[in-house]
Nucleic acid binder design. Structure first.
Lengths: 244, 244
DNA sequence: CGTTGATTTGAGTAAGATCAAGTCGGGTGG
DNA sequence: CCACCCGACTTGATCTTACTCAAATCAACG
């Protein structure tokens, strides 16, 4: 665990996607921070079912939450991008009902286990923000259920790619029309309830149809509108979200 | 809207499934209540995408949350039983990303729109309870994603029936080994990402295998352990949960 | 260069969808 | 009381989407 970076210099906070905070709140958040945690690609950030020790905010990198069946079948629940919180369920429920794994090198802001109840005691505004983040994540998972339950394979893949592209965009990760895209086809398959082989074939159809460019870990979507139509995917404009 | 029933006489609270509250908390919760809302079977409790006005706690009856695609495909996200909270996502996010419909006659305790932020201001304990409920619901939806994404049809149906049976049990709804089971096969299908026809055939296999008895809106599970094995469904013992 | 992980391609199969008729039971109105 | 309606549930036949198995390709890396 590295020493904490002060929140006043947080690279995320200036982004338009995040709502402003008062100086007092920033000070309290900064005070609750106990350090940075760095993880490498593929590392287990939090193990499935473990008793929780920490709550984190993802500062840089990609990760995902997942659950597995005892026979090894894995389902990815959702993806985590900068600004997302992890480990809250472990803090509230006795132990974490899912695992969290890093998709890239990852930098996490770590908070002490008792930071959450402390915020609830002294900082109703921050407490409400934490609850907002929890509700927001549930909304994402609700959308996954809709996809996996009722969309065709083609629709699922298209919707996922659009979704991730937009989230990466609002985290400021677009560079000349492309984003870094660290998922393998296995990750896509496990997130959408598909087999890798079928996922591969669907991706090829999207490529040949000119909807996407995807190679060397970079994704470009030619016509977002068209992709949304393919994926039957519409979402209301993203509200400014709280950070930490 | 009926006049509020005082929370001191709440029929749910004595159940072992719910954690105790202080007298002060009960008084505050009671004060925030604005009334009861009664709905009939099939009624829309909250419409998909509406701006929110109220937050409710389900006092009696069954309901479900759902989302639909514009072409009519519907996905049920999860089922709501007595003690569950509804409408919180609408309160936090600007408008409700899903609909809520009554499966039976339903009795709801209604809270004013500003009750939630008010609790956060004066009652950190209750605020934490609300967040606990949100995290708990997300856990349920995570399990749905796992089912729909990675379980076979047979496993899904078995897991859902066990899950609902246990929840009904902890809400005190078991009568001589059976529970009221208000879902139609269409509801089961829409919750599990299956067609009605296939759902029907799977249910028959379960019946003929002697795993369940299901008729006249009542469900009995002969051997819970065996059904859990069929559904590859295990869950840690339910913790005592907060109410309201 | 050999190894390893990711992607791709082909062939055969199966789980579950769709389509099309039923049946059954509980209202409702004549 | 009875005809009929409607919604839920069944059943059979057929079809398709997506899975499985198997093997080849490819690129990165030590």
């Amino acid at each position: 665990m590295e020493p904490p970076i002060p929140c006043t210099g947080c690279p995320l906070r200036p982004l338009a996607a995040f709502k402003p905070v008062t100086a007092r709140e920033i000070a309290s958040i900064s005070a609750a921070k106990v350090g940075q945690r760095l993880c490498t690609t593929g590392a287990t950030i939090l193990a499935e079912g473990q008793a929780t020790t920490r709550v984190y905010v993802l500062l840089a990198g990609w990760a995902f939450r997942f659950k597995t069946l005892e026979d090894g079948r894995r389902q990815i629940l959702n993806f985590l991008l900068p600004g997302d919180m992890l480990g809250l369920q472990g803090e509230l429920l006795a132990n974490l009902p899912h695992g969290v794994e890093a998709l890239t090198e990852v930098n996490l802001c770590a908070f002490a286990a008792d930071a959450v109840p402390r915020f609830f005691g002294n900082h109703p505004g921050i407490a409400l923000d934490i609850t907002w983040l929890a509700a927001h994540e549930e909304r994402l998972v609700d959308d996954v259920v809709l996809s996996v339950g009722r969309r065709t394979a083609m629709e699922r893949v298209a919707a996922l790619l659009v979704h991730l592209f937009k989230r990466a965009a609002s985290a400021g990760l677009v560079e000349d029309g492309t984003i870094r895209f660290p998922l393998t086809q296995l990750h896509i398959a496990d997130a959408l309830g598909l087999s890798v082989v079928h996922t591969n074939r669907v991706l090829q159809r999207l490529r040949k149809g000119g909807f996407i460019r995807l190679d060397a870990q970079r994704l470009a979507i030619g016509d977002l509108r068209a992709m949304q139509r393919v994926g039957r995917y519409w979402e209301e404009p993203a509200p400014r979200r709280p950070l930490l």
